[in-house]
Amino acid sequence: GAPPGRRWGAGPRRRRAPGLRPGGQDGAGRIGRLLLQRLKPFGCTLLYHDRLRVDAALEEELGAAFEEEVDAMLPKCDVVVLNMPLTDKTRGMFDKEKIAKMKRGVIIVNNARGAVMDTQAVADACRSAHRRAGGDVWYPQPAPKDHPWRYMPNNAMTPHISGITIDAQVSRSLLCFQVRYAVLQGAGLPGAQLHCQGRQARQPVPVK
């Protein structure tokens, strides 16, 4: 039963589950596609925007619908996830006007770079109690003591530590060993990136 003096029930602790909630994603590169794959089993309505649309077979596999205009996608989403690279075009892209297009109560998750968001616009939106934000990236970084994201309500920000897990450290150590071993054997660097005609191809780079 309930503790003395307290009533049993969900009450204010009730939360909404991710299933069937519309989720929008800006950016469908490698990380974005992996996220869509992981969200599919929850039964979410998945929308995505990217300058390059993925092929139809992959869209069907992911269960994701393409949105040609990000401004048209934002009002449809309960959760908006940012996965785009930081470029001259994306710097400060999510400003006061973009955030205003989102639903009341939306959750904004920044997996990209802190600078793709307007710092003050995000802080103001979270203080309004109509928007919530989460992420592991800041701008500038490390964040100064007076950074508004440190003190804004309705946030789940972390200081760029989400990738520092025991498993990640083991993987990095193994990768360092593999690279050093490959170099000493003269076999080239595993997984090195070569830029060929504007596209990236994974090929070993010979070590002289």
Rank of each mutant, 00 (worst) to 15 (best):
P18K: 07
Q25L: 09
A125Q: 01
N155R: 14
K103H: 09
G1S: 14
Q203H: 12
S171E: 15
A72F: 05
G188S: 06
D78P: 01
P142I: 06
P41T: 09
Y151L: 15
A57S: 11
A64Y: 02
L86Q: 06
Q178G: 10
C77F: 00
K103D: 09
K76I: 03
L35N: 02
G19C: 07
R132E: 11
T119M: 05
R127K: 11
G198L: 01
V109E: 01
T158P: 02
V106I: 07
R132L: 07
R131N: 10
V137H: 01
G9F: 06
E68C: 15
S162V: 09
P142Y: 04
G23T: 14
A201K: 13
D167T: 12
L46S: 01
K103L: 09
F94H: 02
A129E: 13
F66L: 04
R51P: 13
V81E: 01
A123E: 01
C44K: 03
A129W: 02
R91G: 00
M152V: 07
C77R: 00
A182P: 06
M117K: 01
S171N: 14
I31Q: 04
V179A: 09
P12I: 08
Q197D: 13
V80R: 00
H147R: 05
A143C: 08
D55S: 08
A115L: 06
D167C: 11
L62W: 03
S173C: 12
R51M: 12
L47C: 11
R127W: 05
